[in-house]
Write a protein that binds this DNA or RNA. Structure first.
Lengths: 353, 353
DNA sequence: ATAAGTTGCGAAAACGTTTTCGTGTTAAAA
DNA sequence: TTTTAACACGAAAACGTTTTCGCAACTTAT
């Protein structure tokens, strides 16, 4: 079990100083051609690589990005990670992942674990519990300690940081407009409770679309699901709630769901009730997961472009990290950007065309 | 932009030495009650936390696990990560994720980036390209440098390391036996080319089941898909291949697919051809992704227990890391474990019961 | 009053780098 | 031959910790 070789060992072996070895490896002109070659040959032979940790300590930066997300078994979030990793790697950074599991405490703990020098900055999407409790002190503290944060998707405005979001209102509105244009007269929405920011925004888009078309929203057509029902264990409960919706509104001919699961479940229930899709019921869902493409009928969706969001977030963060380096006029601008990624409607089989 | 506070700053502020501060914070008995309180109060006030990087350098271990997987937008792999993260966090470790994107080069690069001190050990699943080229030098090198590896799912026997796998042969065999028991007379398999180890093994299980029941396998019932067709871009090509399978074997009444996508695609094609599921065609698939549960009909699957695999792998790795600490009799046993996670059959709508 | 033991703290090394500065040697210039 | 410049290298500091060791200043026992 040989440890990795260090400068010190090379120096000793070659009977020169550590500084000489270091310089030789970095092709410093201070070192004679002779020794340089000797050192480099030896280093290559022993496959020397500078120790990252030592470099991090010396440079006071780790070239590592911390990601905190609510869960990873989720198409959207894993797409985002893919995007982050892509540009992070391209720009010489690693990513370290923490899962909050939608829990406030785990979010805090995870951030503390990473904030103590392990990373240079955060990219995160806020846990539902945190959104519910509206306790954001861990974010402000992190930022106050000079560690930049980029939030995506689930963001809160009161935190001063860069953000990457999709225009949930607009995306939802477009979806509902599509349903209207396709002749739907009674469009229901299946959303989450309002504390989930995106649920609220998408509901807003739904309402906006109706208003624009002089349709009076009916409370009975707005179903707000308690979020715990997302987990597979509560699938039957989710189905019941949706069935209830259909039963008490026989004339529903359009469904806008804020996520895939709600959409496919709605379709399943609707079919059981004898509705034909898209003939007598058209469905559009937010999200661009695997279900949309491969379920039958495939779903018309508002695509969120998760990977693009990740790429954008990573660029935002790294730009900030690397501008700080040169920026010696601290305390100045502190101006933050909010990038909006455009959604687009992907038409599939669950709507008429 | 205040930096995080350090021992040195506290020491200066309180006019004691760095050592005193350090000891006071760790409740050393060397320090008087008085100063200890003073230091701790001050540290708390300024929210002092020891710098992880400095600790890593000093202790020569990072308490961080490196994960290298082919892709993250994949139910199985993200489940595994969830499992790894769960036990890693519980045991005081972080996880840092690298994606190989199924590419040999990216796998190598990623491992090199992390192996230079950033992590204490690897958990990984091998990229398809690597399996194809059968070039494993980066694994052996890493291991030779004293960094333990745990492989899962896609493993190779010639590398001396701990492994966590599912019994692919057995799982596949059970699935096919279920089909046989359910009355299927002409069972086809949709698998991958043999260089994907799990594809090969599952095909073996298929053959074993047939043999056990005195059924002569027919080459025309064995479809081995070129793996590039996994990506959504080639979906139509995949469909064509499967359609071909059905067209040239009209009597197929059972399908065993090695992954979800193949299964749902097969179902889609079969329906187009007028087959009813599960009445005239029964389907079983490996994998426990989201498609299985939510597509219609839902899929009967061989569940792989991704999260459990992740948990097991993390425990294996951390155990090894922490046994090394005490184990000063190096060079000894070097005995590695291969843990087999049992699969089980989850019956849903795509088979009769 | 002296020897011995206790208490409380600081200096310094170590982890592995990079970089600044100093210095001895040799070669070129005066 | 002396002065100056170029060259090649080493010592040391710094990043932020923890820990070993040493050493004063007391306190207790003789």
């Amino acid at each position: 079990m040989k440890r990795k070789i260090t400068l010190k060992q090379i120096a000793k072996e070659l009977d020169v100083s550590i500084s000489t070895v270091s310089k030789a490896l970095r092709n410093s002109i201070e070192i004679s051609e002779d020794t340089r070659q000797k050192v480099q040959a030896f280093a290559k032979l022993y496959n020397y690589r500078p120790n990252n940790i030592a470099l991090s300590l010396k440079n006071r930066k780790t070239k590592t990005i911390g990601i905190i997300i609510p869960e990873i078994v989720h198409h959207f979030f894993s797409k985002v990670i893919t995007g982050i990793e892509l540009v992070a790697n391209k720009r010489g950074y690693n990513v370290i992942v923490g899962l909050s599991n939608e829990s406030f405490d785990k979010e805090v703990i995870n951030m503390q674990m990473l904030a103590n020098g392990s990373i240079d900055g955060f990219i995160l999407s806020i846990a539902k519990e945190t959104l519910q409790q509206q306790d954001y002190h861990h974010f402000t503290e992190t930022i106050n300690q000079g560690m930049p944060i980029v939030m995506f998707d689930r963001v809160v405005n009161e935190i001063p940081c860069d953000k990457v979001i999709v225009d949930d209102v607009k995306g939802a509105k477009q979806a509902v407009e599509k349903l209207i244009k396709n002749g739907c007269k009674n469009i229901a929405i299946i959303s989450t409770k309002d504390y989930v920011s995106v649920g609220k925004l998408r509901t807003q888009g739904y309402l906006d679309a109706l208003e624009d078309h002089k349709i009076t929203p009916k409370a009975s057509l707005i179903l707000k699901i308690e979020d715990k029902l997302m987990s597979d264990d509560h699938l039957d409960k989710l189905e019941k709630e949706i069935e209830q919706l259909f039963q008490s509104n026989k004339s529903i001919d359009g469904i806008f769901a804020v996520n895939e699961l709600y959409a496919v479940t709605a379709i399943k229930v609707a079919r059981k009730l004898g509705l034909e899709i898209p003939k007598s019921l058209q469905v559009i869902s937010f999200s661009d997961g695997v279900l949309s493409k491969h379920s039958t009928p495939s779903l018309t969706t508002v695509s969120q472009h998760g990977q693009e969001i990740g790429e954008e977030a990573a660029n935002l963060l790294i730009n900030r990290l690397e501008s700080e380096e040169t920026d010696y006029n601290d305390e100045t601008d502190e101006v933050y950007e909010t990038v909006v990624i455009e959604t687009n409607l992907i038409e599939r089989e669950s709507t008429k065309n």
